[in-house]
């Protein structure tokens, strides 16, 4: 039952050497009694949190609006705040992608992290220097994409899902020119078939094209050799998918681009 006697020391060689080299002097911390040191901290934290909760619950009432009316949509209609990032993405992509495929990719991508991040350093302590790429990508996805889109959806979206500054009056008749065009049309393609082909080329050049070009460029580096082809392609795929979101948001906000590739079955 007691795990204190069986602390495993995995991937030992590399991490031990880095520990030795590290100037922060990471030593094997010696163990202290759970009672009272840990239990005391937990108890204190629980009391403080419960105090905060009580004050919050007394001071602020949970919202109740008018009774449900399936025929009258409030303007604007917002999802729960923790889904507003997704609702914001729904502006840029069709529901099958923004509402289903992308969330699935986020979940699968998060689950895949321990298996694609094979860097043995930074296991169990704070460090940025030893894992710059992993932390940058994660913080970009979590803070820049997820959290800031939630802030945008919560505070900057008003009636008609138009952008309003927090102190602006929510005018339901605000006119915003949103007339949108597809990217192939913007690039000069006019016929349906050429637009289809141009769109397809753009999408395929990005993925898997981008991943394959990256593979060629990185082929001889140590990073690629350590990762191996499978891990590389999973990482590159997830990374490109994440970046596709940024590109689409930029294209929409800057040029009113609606779709990049229109097909009879789905639009991207």
């Amino acid at each position: 039952m007691d795990s204190t006697t069986t602390t495993p020391n995995p991937s030992s060689e590399v991490s031990e050497s880095t520990v030795k080299n590290d100037k922060k002097k990471i030593t094997l911390s010696h163990r202290i009694h759970t009672w009272p040191y840990l239990v005391r901290m937990e108890f204190l934290t629980a009391i403080i949190v419960m105090l905060g909760m009580t004050v919050w619950a007394i001071g602020m009432d949970a919202p109740t609006e008018q009774p449900a009316d399936p025929n009258r949509t409030p303007n604007p209609s917002k999802a729960p705040w923790y889904f507003l990032g997704l609702q914001e993405i729904l502006v840029y992509f069709d529901p099958w992608y923004a509402g289903v495929v992308l969330p699935t990719l986020i979940i699968v991508g998060l689950m895949a992290i321990p298996y694609i991040d094979i860097n043995p350093r930074g296991n169990g302590y704070y460090t940025f220097r030893e894992r710059k790429f992993a932390i940058s990508v994660f913080l970009f996805g979590f803070v820049v994409l997820w959290l800031s889109l939630i802030v945008l959806g919560t505070f900057f979206r008003g009636p008609g899902w138009n952008i309003f500054l927090p102190w602006e009056y929510w005018d339901p008749h605000k006119v915003v020119a949103l007339t949108s065009v597809d990217l192939p049309y913007m690039l000069g393609a006019r016929q349906e078939s050429t637009m289809f082909i141009v769109g397809m080329l753009l999408v395929f050049c990005y993925y898997p094209g981008g991943a394959l070009v990256g593979q060629l460029l990185l082929r001889d580096t140590n990073i690629y050799k350590q990762l191996g082809a499978v891990r590389y392609h999973i990482t590159a795929g997830l990374f490109l998918m994440m970046f596709a979101l940024v590109i689409k948001i930029f294209l929409r906000l800057a040029f009113n681009v609606k779709y990049i590739w229109v097909t009879p079955w789905f639009n991207v």
Binding site: L90, P159, L178
Partner: peptide, 24 residues
């Protein structure tokens, strides 16, 4: 047809505008 909200009819702009994600 986006996600099932009821658009508003804005007579002055001669269009229907959806409050959820701004479809017109």
């Amino acid at each position: 047809t986006h996600l099932g909200c009821t658009p508003r009819y804005l007579a002055s702009e001669n269009k229907f505008k959806c409050p959820c994600h701004g479809s017109g």
